[in-house]
Computed example of a mutant assay.
Amino acid sequence: MGFRSGINERQRRVGEELRRARDAAGLSASEVGEALGVKGPNISHIEAGRIGLTLERLNTWLDLCAIDDPGYRAGLSAMSESSGKGWWTDFKHDVIGRALDLAEAEANSTALDSYETLLIPGLLQTRSYSEVIHGYNERKVEFRHRRQKLLSGEDAPPFRAVIHEAALHMMYGGPTVMRDQLSHLIEVSRLPNVTIQILPFDCTSFASTDTPFMLLRGPHHRLHTVLLEQPHGGSFVGDPESVAKFDQKFDRIRGLALPPLSASTPTSSATYRDSLGLIQHIRYKVQGW
């Protein structure tokens, strides 16, 4: 049971889930250690993600904690057994660890929900827009656009995005970049798994949060994760109570936002209000710059 040289989010989450299961079962670390045939102090290392478990020991742990939900057990086993390698591995020297963790989590998600306030969501950005955001760092831009293949690939997960109107008015890169970005939002909305809504300036209710976040839905509801964007950097949140709150927040934000953008349905009149109409209006203003 050697120590890992580095701990990624998936490994940390498996340890967190095991600790939660042990606490819920009212078992001490020494009791679990005895059942697994390992020393008690090693249990804390396992729960911190510093040490992995064989599938046999993982199942023993779950049996001991009376975890009998087959979907949850299968999801946790898959996370524990995963090598963590994927296309993102080629970028390990180019982007921060959190970005690699996000790419891996996205690749294993069954659905994605995103709320952004001042930026276009990364999965919906044009290359020119991403270049401005990433200071023209070629590898970071390439990494972001490699992530976007998720939305159009085989078995692409449903992706719902709510974007605050403020993000549409930020002239990152200038009018040409933003005009193309707004047009791209309309085009990408044609994908059957993509739903885009705009939260307008004139919304009269507080949306419950002013913090951007992404809800990554795992193979089981107990394995959902929230990526919370904060001033000091992003952080992953996985405890069920917090995830449930963000799930509720997203539902509320969707309810306050304009109807979904539908590129196949033309705006019926100048006064008809939906996400497509607002984007078209802002794009028209940008063209006049």
Score class of each variant (00 low, 15 high):
T117K: 06
T89E: 14
S128P: 10
A107T: 12
V38Y: 07
H134T: 08
R147I: 10
L150S: 10
E106Q: 03
D94R: 07
D63N: 05
G75Q: 05
R146K: 12
V132Y: 13
W61V: 02
V95G: 15
R147W: 09
D101Y: 13
G33V: 03
L76K: 04
A103E: 02
D101A: 11
L64Y: 07
H45T: 14
R144L: 13
N42Y: 11
Y136Q: 06
F91E: 12
G97A: 10
D63K: 00
V38G: 10
G49L: 03
E138W: 02
K149N: 12
T117C: 00
S83H: 07
V32L: 06
R73E: 02
S128Q: 12
S114M: 02
R146V: 14
L123F: 05
S130H: 01
D113S: 11
L100G: 05
A103Q: 02
R50G: 09
C65R: 08
Y136N: 00
S128Y: 00
S30H: 08
V95R: 15
D90A: 15
H45G: 14
S83T: 09
S30I: 00
T60K: 03
D113F: 04
K92Y: 15
L124C: 07
V32A: 10
R127C: 01
Y72S: 03
L112P: 05
A103V: 11
N59Q: 14
Q125S: 09
G97P: 11
L64M: 10
R57G: 14
L53W: 15
H93C: 14
A35S: 06
E34D: 09
P41F: 07
E81Q: 13
